[in-house]
Amino acid sequence: MPLKGFLHQTENGSPVTVGNYKIIPVSRAYGVILPKVAGGFVWNHPLAVRIEREGESDQEIPIHDVTRIAQVRLIAGSVFATAVLWAILHLLGRKVQKQEPLNG
């Protein structure tokens, strides 16, 4: 019977040897398996590549999802810029309201 609940697993792939290197791809998966119904959601993505070389310490190169990073930055940037603009307009509006009785 399949497991139920939250899923969080980091898994190493089979090592690939190239010259003196041994490359081990690493993936990470997150998921939710709904307990009441037979269903759920799984998100699995590449995490890093571990490089092992004889006589040297292991090296790990992270894999970044540049498309996702760009998407998040664009959306977050637009929300932030809009908030700043709103704050500026709001402050300007209050200043004008304060000055109006003096001028009149």
């Binding site: 697993q9 898994e11 190239v18 490359i23 791809p25 998966a29 996702r68």
Partner: peptide, 25 residues
């Protein structure tokens, strides 16, 4: 959720090895 679904089989071209990777939802 297994690692095999994220990384494809390694492709060997001469001395070079290429491993494509993908996000799976």
């Amino acid at each position: 959720a297994s690692v095999g679904k994220v990384y494809a089989e390694p492709i060997r071209v001469g001395d070079t090895v290429i491993i494509p990777s993908a996000e799976v939802v």
